[in-house]
């Protein structure tokens, strides 16, 4: 099976800081792939390199078989690559509805957009009640729901999620993870960055462990979940 996304020896520098060192991994179509690692390991940086928010200093990111070198972030949305960034990145001064419309910025099919917004509301009924409210007035969990619903508005093929469980109550986190699985079952490939290694590995087909900018371990989610080193380092056992 050809990989939908592949990274080959990707290096990223922030000035003098060497954030990624030869990162290589693949995301196959239809899968949930998770990237776990400690704070500062380079997870967010990896997603930024994939969505072209920054350019690698060396190495290649390929999406649908083509190198992304020189592409701009906004051009990738049209190709089905969507990134829900760390810290949710909702627009606090815009309404919930306007945030959703921005998710569908490149689409012109009004009816389809409206239908997808309703789908989002079906996933997260709380958003429906708050449709006209400024997004900044939503609770943290609701903002996370909005971030996911908004990313889906672009009808992504590949969805990058950066710590969707950040700051959420355990029950809400579980709901969000169930929804991520549902989204995946509907055919969206997912690259999931998480601190909550337990939940992430639990739903992932494939997992990669990042340590100081390097992939140190990989394997099917269920397998990593059983690995003693992982349990010790990331599951606090």
């Amino acid at each position: 099976m050809a990989a939908l996304l592949s990274l080959e020896n990707v290096d990223v520098h922030y000035g003098a800081i060497h954030a990624l060192r030869g990162v290589s991994f693949e995301v196959n179509e239809g899968q949930i792939v998770t990237l776990i690692g400690a704070n500062g390991a380079g997870k967010t940086t990896t997603l930024r390199a994939v969505s072209c928010m920054l350019q690698p200093t060396s190495g290649t990111v390929r999406y649908q078989g083509q190198s992304l070198a020189g592409q701009k972030a906004h051009q990738l949305v049209a190709r089905g690559l969507c990134h829900a960034p760390e810290g949710r990145g909702i627009f606090p001064q815009l309404t919930v509805h306007e945030n959703l419309l921005l998710g569908a910025f490149l689409r012109r099919d009004k009816a389809g957009i409206a239908a997808d917004a309703e789908k989002g509301f079906a996933l997260f009924p709380r958003l429906k009640e708050r449709e006209k409210q400024l997004a900044g007035t939503l609770s943290g969990g609701e903002q996370q729901m909005l971030a996911i619903a908004r990313a889906l508005m672009a009808r992504p093929k590949l969805l990058l999620l950066d710590e969707p469980s950040l700051g959420l109550a355990p029950q809400v986190t579980e709901t969000i993870f169930r929804i991520i699985e549902d989204i995946n079952k509907q055919g969206v490939t997912i690259l999931l960055v998480e601190q909550n290694a337990h939940l992430a590995l639990g739903i992932a087909h494939q997992g990669y462990v990042l340590e100081t900018g390097t992939v140190v371990k990989s394997g099917p989610g269920a397998e990593l979940l059983k690995s003693p080193e992982i349990r010790e380092a990331y599951l606090g056992e």
Partner: peptide
């Protein structure tokens, strides 16, 4: 309008606006 919404989005956060497909 769509463009106006994009303008307001860029004014709040250009990086995230770009992730929505907005050509900043």
């Amino acid at each position: 309008t769509r463009l106006g919404t994009a303008m307001r989005a860029v004014s709040h956060n250009p990086d995230v606006a770009a992730l929505m497909g907005v050509n900043v």
